[in-house]
Every structure is written in structure tokens, then in C-alpha cells.
Amino acid sequence: MSQDRTNSAGSVRLLFELSRDDNTRLYDDLVRFNKGTKRVNRLRFLAHEGLMAQHRTVAQEGVVAAVAPHGASDLRVSGSIARQTNLAFDAPSSIEGK
């Protein structure tokens, strides 16, 4: 219990398993790198870019303009590409065998 409290103030550690069937494009992109730092950094980069695209999309749609960083209105992001990025990190739509 105390360990959860100390981790919440510091960094986030993730351990997950991704199969090619879960998300083919993400799997193919990550498998290019050997296990370790390069693969983790690639996932970190993809997550950051997806988050930034999501925030720009929200700002462009006028839903919550305060979420976007200053000057984001000058950026052009395809809404369909941003939605695809967001879907890449969603949970699978169905779980087979359950």
C-alpha cells in the first residue's frame, strides 16, 4: 500500500504484453527495436505524440480550447489521423474466449 503512494508521486512503471493480433501496426513498429531502452523510448515517443495530437484535435474542434498549448490553433492536424492514433491505445473491442 505504501509503495503505491510513493510511486504515484514519482514515475509510472508499466509492464504489458502486446501480441500482433492486438494491434498489428503498433506491434510491427515496436518489434523493429531490440528489447530494452530503444523500444521503450519508441513507445514513449508514440504515446507522447498521440497525446499531443489528441489535445490539438480537441482544441481545433472547439470543445476545450484551454487544453491545447499556446499557438496550437496554427497547427494543422488531420482529425482522422488523430482518431486513429487514439484508437491505437484503446482497449481491444472484444476479447476472444471470454
Score class of each variant (00 low, 15 high):
81 I>Q: 03
25 R>L: 08
17 E>S: 13
86 N>L: 00
89 F>S: 01
70 H>Q: 14
51 L>M: 09
31 V>M: 07
15 L>G: 14
22 D>K: 03
65 A>Y: 03
26 L>S: 03
54 Q>L: 06
22 D>C: 02
58 V>M: 05
27 Y>F: 14
1 M>R: 07
89 F>T: 02
47 A>Q: 02
82 A>R: 10
42 R>T: 00
40 V>D: 14
50 G>A: 13
5 R>E: 14
45 F>G: 02
85 T>R: 14
72 A>R: 04
98 K>D: 09
70 H>K: 15
98 K>T: 08
45 F>C: 07
20 R>V: 03
12 V>G: 01
25 R>A: 14
61 E>N: 14
80 S>W: 06
76 R>A: 13
74 D>E: 14
89 F>P: 00
41 N>F: 07
36 G>S: 05
62 G>F: 07
46 L>K: 07
46 L>D: 06
48 H>W: 07
3 Q>D: 15
61 E>T: 00
20 R>W: 00
52 M>V: 08
86 N>W: 07
4 D>M: 11
7 N>H: 09
42 R>Q: 12
66 A>E: 06
59 A>S: 09
2 S>V: 10
64 V>G: 01
40 V>A: 15
70 H>I: 13
29 D>C: 07
37 T>P: 00
68 A>M: 04
44 R>D: 09
24 T>F: 03
38 K>M: 12
16 F>R: 02
10 G>I: 08
90 D>K: 10
29 D>Q: 06
41 N>W: 01
8 S>H: 11
23 N>D: 10
63 V>I: 13
16 F>D: 03
28 D>W: 03
25 R>F: 04
96 E>L: 04
52 M>R: 04
8 S>A: 15
8 S>R: 14
61 E>R: 15
10 G>M: 12
4 D>C: 11
55 H>I: 15
44 R>I: 05
93 S>Q: 11
65 A>H: 08
16 F>K: 00
69 P>I: 06
65 A>F: 03
4 D>W: 07
48 H>G: 03
95 I>D: 00
17 E>M: 11
49 E>C: 07
51 L>E: 06
95 I>A: 01
68 A>Q: 05
93 S>A: 09
12 V>C: 11
8 S>P: 02
18 L>H: 05
67 V>D: 03
21 D>C: 00
